[in-house]
């Protein structure tokens, strides 16, 4: 296997006396989709926040694309090529689709000392990225009036706009109906096809995990193990994941 896109070695994070992450090692390959599961408080969120630049790790090293990196802020992570899609999608409901896609990174035009938003340019680009995602969602639609699935599309489009190498998804299925989850699965397949790596948090076993190449289980701040979802029958996969989450390793070996 070639050099992984992301290599974590001995990543730890303490909040005062509480150890949230304890010497975590994790590799993510290019165009690989990884599911991250575990109970509430197991450390998944902390890990994702370290990757997205919100928290600095207490100890350990991160290598991204073969180079050691340190993220002081979310924009450092973003500049390196890591995009985060939050559970609540972090969209502005009163803005239209194009404005949300480009929020914080607007395209602008300079006229002498003044710069103005390049609205036609952004609209065009937003329409383009929507088309690539297989939808004709109008860039002028107000996001607050969209359905949950459409909003998910906007959040993904926003992340894609910046050609990320790694996309972090925090509980992407939490607010979705079964039907919308199918849409999301399609999106993830698309991202993989574009060569984007994915790290997706879920605290439930869901169908969505089937699009993942590996499912990593976190328990009490450590990696408890991992499961390849396609290596066995679905019910067997579920049993394996359950065993790792609860620490019932005997069941997993069997």
């Amino acid at each position: 296997m070639a050099t992984p896109l992301l290599e974590l070695r001995g990543i730890s994070k303490s909040f005062g006396p509480v150890t949230a992450l304890d010497r975590v090692d994790l590799d993510i390959g290019a165009a690989e989709a990884i599911g991250l599961i575990g109970d509430n408080g197991a450390g998944k969120s902390t890990l994702v926040k370290i990757l997205s630049g919100l928290y600095p790790p207490t100890a350990g090293t991160m290598r991204f694309d073969g180079r050691e990196v340190r993220f002081g802020s979310p924009s450092d992570a973003r500049n390196a090529g890591i995009e985060m899609i939050y559970q609540d999608l972090a969209l502005c409901g009163d803005l239209d689709v194009a404005a949300n896609v480009f929020l914080g990174r607007e395209r602008r035009r300079r006229y002498g000392p003044f710069t103005f938003l390049d609205r036609p340019g952004m609209e065009k680009a937003a329409r383009q990225v929507m088309r690539e995602l297989g939808t004709d969602l109008e860039p002028g639609r107000i996001v607050g009036a969209l359905s949950g699935g459409q909003r998910q599309l906007v959040a993904v489009a926003r992340a894609l706009q910046f050609e990320p190498r790694l996309m972090l998804l925090d509980e992407p299925t939490a607010a979705l109906s079964t039907e919308k989850i199918r849409v999301l699965m399609g999106l993830i397949e698309q991202l993989k096809a574009r060569g984007v790596s994915i790290l997706m948090i879920s605290h439930r076993f869901t169908d969505i995990l089937h699009v993942c190449d590996r499912v990593v289980v976190v328990r009490q701040g450590q990696i408890a193990g991992e499961v390849a979802p396609h290596a066995q029958a679905p019910d067997k996969t579920m049993a394996l994941m359950h065993a790792l989450m609860t620490g019932d390793t005997l069941g997993a070996v069997a």
């Binding site: 939808t135 199918r182 849409v183 399609g186």
Partner: peptide
């Protein structure tokens, strides 16, 4: 795999 057409 492409997007499920009916959904979109």
């Amino acid at each position: 795999m492409t997007l499920p057409a009916d959904a979109t």
